[in-house]
Simulated assay, not measured.
Amino acid sequence: MVNMPRKPVYEQVVDDITTSIRTGTLKPGQKLPTIAELARQYNSSDNPIKRALWILDERGWIEVHQGKGSFVADNPPT
């Protein structure tokens, strides 16, 4: 059996958060966990988490507010 290469942490975070938004687990306006909390959850450093949040922000899934946190976008992509 061939081991599939594991996805980079930032891709796992992007996939997990977009799935949670699509399924309604995360709702528009809901605050996401902090970078530190996500880093612990994914057993990662801060940088892959920051990269994932940046990608999600660029794609319109979340809105990042400096000093306040990251929130699910009011109208995320469908």
Score class of each variant (00 low, 15 high):
M1T: 09
V2D: 14
N3D: 11
N3P: 15
M4I: 13
M4L: 15
P5K: 00
R6L: 12
K7W: 01
K7G: 04
K7L: 14
K7Y: 03
P8N: 08
V9K: 12
Y10I: 00
E11P: 00
E11G: 00
E11D: 06
E11M: 13
E11Y: 00
Q12K: 10
Q12L: 12
V14L: 03
V14W: 08
D15S: 10
D15L: 07
D16N: 06
D16T: 14
T18P: 11
T19D: 04
S20D: 11
S20C: 03
S20L: 06
I21M: 10
I21T: 10
I21N: 11
R22L: 14
R22W: 11
R22F: 10
T23E: 05
G24A: 07
G24H: 05
G24D: 04
G24Y: 03
T25N: 07
L26S: 04
L26T: 08
K27V: 15
K27D: 12
P28K: 02
P28Y: 08
G29H: 15
G29M: 13
Q30C: 03
Q30I: 10
Q30T: 13
Q30Y: 05
K31W: 12
K31Q: 14
P33L: 00
P33A: 01
P33N: 01
P33T: 03
T34S: 15
T34E: 02
I35D: 01
E37M: 01
E37I: 01
E37H: 02
L38R: 01
A39Q: 01
A39F: 01
R40C: 03
R40H: 10
Y42L: 09
Y42T: 08
N43M: 06
N43G: 14
S44T: 13
S44M: 10
S45R: 06
D46W: 05
D46C: 00
N47P: 00
N47W: 10
P48E: 10
P48I: 04
I49F: 02
I49T: 05
I49D: 08
K50V: 01
K50N: 05
K50L: 03
R51V: 08
R51Y: 03
R51E: 00
A52C: 02
A52E: 01
A52H: 01
L53Q: 09
L53P: 07
L53I: 11
W54H: 11
I55R: 06
I55N: 03
I55L: 10
I55T: 11
D57S: 13
E58R: 11
R59M: 08
G60K: 12
W61S: 05
W61G: 04
I62V: 15
E63Q: 11
E63C: 11
V64F: 04
H65T: 08
H65S: 09
H65Q: 07
Q66S: 14
Q66D: 09
K68F: 12
K68E: 13
K68T: 05
K68D: 13
K68H: 09
G69K: 05
G69A: 08
F71P: 06
F71W: 07
F71M: 11
V72L: 02
V72G: 05
A73Y: 03
A73F: 03
D74T: 12
D74E: 15
D74P: 10
D74Q: 11
D74K: 07
N75S: 15
N75K: 15
N75M: 14
N75Q: 14
P76H: 05
P76C: 09
P77L: 03
P77R: 09
P77S: 05
T78D: 06
T78L: 06
